[in-house]
Design a binder for these strands. Structure first.
Lengths: 211, 211
DNA sequence: AAGCTACCTGACCAATTGGTCAAGAACTTT
DNA sequence: AAAGTTCTTGACCAATTGGTCAGGTAGCTT
């Protein structure tokens, strides 16, 4: 019934073309939102006819889902920085660095993710309810351990995590605002560095975890 | 040529109907984004035929612009909390309270605003480039004064403001995520209180401005 | 060179979109 | 009660949308 053109052994051509389309889609979804994005525009940005996009991704929703889960995986990976550490200053410091690098390197993906969650996560509820809940629980426990060991002040781990997420995402999601307030120019590398150290300074001192 | 049905002395009926439509529009724009929102859905939520919505707001963009500027004005008003204060703990503390109240009371509007900025502020560039730039400059000066008076640590005022905006907005914009991580329930009043005091505690200590 | 599979795409379609309009209903003002 | 204004809305339209499909090409395997 369904032709289902997905080959058994992923062809290199398919992989490459999917990559190009996903990159274009990420940009268009980020700039226009899910509802505002059109398959035609994605096709144009990817430099191919619309039917070709539909050859690789049958529906708009499938394409969108791939874009979202790609960035979500990157997002979760930043947790590695968290895990190896033996004290809050090291762990949270590294986590801030990692998340800021994500905001800098994947601004489109960050926006797509933010947009998705903001609109009630209609497409990736399952991700949120399983992976994220688990991830948060683990990390909150790490923080609680630090508190119990007297390595930092007794602060609600959950609200600390929200502060970290919000602040680091801000530089991607509200990048346009940040840019406007920077005289119309994107932050340069020095300014990114300044942002990172400002955040780390406030947060680490704020939770009583200075080195 | 254009009928232009706007009466010279704003009728009370018009005011009331505009209010109802604006409220419905705010919700729909927040949940679906500008591109995903439809005039038909807004009309349905407002409980009136689509043509009636078009009677009060000629175009989708005009309606949207009104929704966005309404929330932006509320957002800027929170600055009052900032201004009256004589030291950072009081000023920034009050500002955090005010912005958290906005997140709690106007979650739809906050999302619309966030969405607009995230997509490059195509509709309200002018607002951003004039009002916001000015507002930020003023507030940054207030913070700089506090620093110069030795009332707080020497921290980049700009990045501190970003941290405040991001964190307080988070509870509205990412309300769905917060709710999911709260077992599927919205924060109750005690939890909002806990959020506020956690943020204040971290930030005020973090900038060296404890009372 | 024949056969198979993956890839490609112009033309097309049903559904939905923002927006219009004309004809009338409901108020105010005179 | 007539005249003028504001409000209301079903029916309609041109444009755009996501998605389909048939007929073709390119490249590997035998």
């Amino acid at each position: 019934m369904s032709p289902d053109p997905i080959p058994l052994r992923p062809n290199s051509k398919r992989q490459e073309n999917e990559r190009i389309i996903l990159k274009a889609a990420e940009k268009v979804f980020a700039e226009a939102g899910y509802g505002g994005a059109t398959m035609q525009l994605i096709a144009d940005v990817a430099g191919r006819p619309k039917a070709n996009v539909h050859y690789y991704f049958q529906t708009k929703e499938q394409l969108y889902r791939r874009v979202v889960s790609n960035i979500f995986d990157i997002w979760l990976q930043a947790a590695d920085a968290f895990d190896g550490a033996k004290n809050p200053a090291e762990g949270i410091g590294a986590y801030i660095d990692a998340k800021m690098e994500i905001s800098r390197k994947y601004p489109h993906g960050s926006k797509v993710w933010a947009s998705e969650v903001m609109h009630g996560a209609p497409i990736i509820q399952d991700y949120l309810e399983i992976k994220l809940v688990e991830w948060t629980k683990d990390r909150a426990e790490v923080i609680q351990n630090w508190i119990d060991q007297g390595l930092m002040d007794p602060i609600s781990p959950r609200h600390l995590l929200y502060l970290l997420w919000a602040t680091t995402q801000h530089y991607a999601d509200f990048g346009h605002q940040v840019e406007t307030l920077n005289g119309g120019f994107p932050l340069d590398l020095d300014q990114w560095q300044e942002a990172k150290s400002s955040i780390k300074r406030i947060v680490l001192k704020g939770i009583g975890a200075e080195e």
